[in-house]
Write a protein that binds this DNA or RNA. Sequence first.
DNA 1: CACGACGAAACTGTCGACACTATTCTTTCT
DNA 2: AGAAAGAATAGTGTCGACAGTTTCGTCGTG
Lengths: 239, 239
Amino acid sequence: MTKNSFQPRRNLAHEIAVQLRRDIISGTFKPGEALAEPMLAERFGVSRAPVREAMIELERAGLVQFETTGRTRVRTLEEKDITEIVEARIALEAMGARLAAIRWTAEDTRWIEKSIMSQEKAATGVKFSQLDIAMHEYIMQCSGNERLVTLWQFVRWQFEMALTYIHSLQQKMAPDLRSFSVMGHRNVLKPLANRQPETAAKVMAQHIKDSIEWYTPEISEPPPTAKATRSGKRPIPAK
Amino acid sequence: MTKNSFQPRRNLAHEIAVQLRRDIISGTFKPGEALAEPMLAERFGVSRAPVREAMIELERAGLVQFETTGRTRVRTLEEKDITEIVEARIALEAMGARLAAIRWTAEDTRWIEKSIMSQEKAATGVKFSQLDIAMHEYIMQCSGNERLVTLWQFVRWQFEMALTYIHSLQQKMAPDLRSFSVMGHRNVLKPLANRQPETAAKVMAQHIKDSIEWYTPEISEPPPTAKATRSGKRPIPAK
DNA sequence: CACGACGAAACTGTCGACACTATTCTTTCT
DNA sequence: AGAAAGAATAGTGTCGACAGTTTCGTCGTG
């Protein structure tokens, strides 16, 4: 695997961005919710400057959106957004798999096999998703294309946020979904290990398309409107 | 064509980012060159705050890079970078063409035909490239996937920057290169107009791959090292 | 002459302040 | 009571300042 040489600034702003990203993905801040700079500054115990920079970093990751007035809100998630995210994932990961197949090593195979074994043992849907995403990330990095990985990261976080709003994953995972996904992963590994770029691309695209078929029917909860989530000042959780 | 609903903050920072992007793409600031915030603040007649935000926006577009110390430099361009950019373009634009073919309209066909006619009349390589990129952008927006377009924009600016360092484009365009490119565009239009997604994706990928084959042999100038460009305080050009 | 240490200059990260604008609440009039 | 107008509250955009750190230039020494 080729290492990704991208290194973000290691300043306060980045730390806050990481923390805030976690909060958004985990649902602490809900879609449509306003993110006021003074509020966040107090929450993290810093001034507004680093918060502002963190906002920009999150906007680029597609987790928040700026209004024309300058206000920032957590990005809302609708049917169309899921479609877009998946289409973007397919575009990037198909190419990622294609390139990864070219440079694939025996060590990479071992890594994936180990990951698949962990996936089979994952107790919850959440845990499984984490392992799933980690595996996809590994393959992307095997592509050796730093830019492709960077672009993928943006989609990845949006995807993780979407997963939070898919109910079924929050509970114990359906055995058939798990075995289906694992089978998909085995199918992906095969052309990679055999160094068949075109097949790897095709199988990866199909795998992503398939796995989302299992999820989407479950996206029942309509994203709460901004008004609904803002009503009543939510107490600021302790840092 | 579906309109892209993304709207950036319309503040000073964004204006500076746009201007600075132009300066980098046009070669006013050269790869490896340090971009000090006070210097840019003076150049644009603003304080450091908007400049800082502009830097983050440019970093996301891949035009500048942060060092671990916090310094910002114009991103360097090497052989590998061109490869990465092209691979990313293929990934995104193949998917873009695939989706665009689904929603393609007669109006879109007219737009492209008009663009191709302009391309045939373009006097310089630079002008041709602009029309070329505009056409690719149009197709991306026809995909109807806002996220795909956003991701593509990042690669696009890096690609434009790379073009600046391809000498042949700066001069009068070789007739055979032009007719070759135009033919490629006609080939792309066909499956789009016929609404053949898979063919459109394949042809678009091939077209990008082909057109870069014509360029790359010309990338002879090694990117100047940071040291070379920093020697002697370059006078700040008037705004 | 090369090289390392020291001091000066420059740059970044963060903060608090202020003007201006958007939003919310209150009051008044129909 | 409902709507419109105005006041108060909250938030954004930008600035200048300061501490800490890096970088650059210079001087002294082997």
